[in-house]
């Protein structure tokens, strides 16, 4: 077997989705039967502001090839300002990951409302397309349990 690993490799994405918007958005993409890659494992969180940097680091350390955090558009947060706080905090996470030499494409944030099923599908499609050429993430990864 001499297949090119880049063609067989399927990026694994961990997606932290706010339950008030992006998680519902992903449902909408599903019930609307929009086709998009099945590479993302969704984890529903109460708010993008509740995503600890530790979740992101741990996802990478457990072997995620990409991590997505998706929350409500600014002004739409169920808790009023959770997404503003997330934006600041996760900006620093992103900067730090790039600073130590992780490819910037591997961490991503998006604002996706409950009505934006098509946008959710697009975000995942783009993410997978950007991750594919990078190959597996093995920088932060520890031994697999």
């Amino acid at each position: 077997m001499s297949e090119d690993p880049k063609t067989t490799y399927e990026p694994r994405i961990i997606a932290f989705l706010c339950k008030w918007c992006s998680s519902a958005g992903s449902d909408l993409a599903g019930v609307s039967r929009i086709q998009y890659p099945a590479n993302a494992t969704p984890i529903t969180v109460p708010c993008s502001g509740s995503v600890s940097p530790q979740y992101i680091l741990t996802a990478f350390r457990k072997g995620a090839d990409g991590v997505l955090v998706s929350g409500c558009h600014l002004g739409d947060c169920h808790y009023l300002e959770g997404n503003y706080l997330a934006r600041r905090k996760l900006f620093l996470v992103k900067e730090l990951l790039e600073f130590i030499g992780l490819e910037p494409e591997r961490f991503r944030m998006s604002w996706v409302s409950a009505a934006e099923g098509a946008k959710f599908a697009q975000v995942i499609t783009d993410f997978v397309a950007d991750l594919r050429p990078l190959g597996p993430q093995d920088k932060l990864q520890g031994q697999r349990p």
């Binding site: 940097p53 530790q54 680091l57 741990t58 350390r61 620093l92 996470v93 730090l96 990951l97 130590i100 932060l140 990864q141 520890g142 031994q143």
Partner: peptide, 21 residues
């Protein structure tokens, strides 16, 4: 236990990035 105490590369990265943040 988010990060083990062992001095492996992955745990060390977890440690240092956590502390920086």
């Amino acid at each position: 236990r988010w990060i083990e105490r062992s001095a492996s590369r992955s745990d060390n990265i977890g440690y240092h990035l956590t502390r920086a943040l």
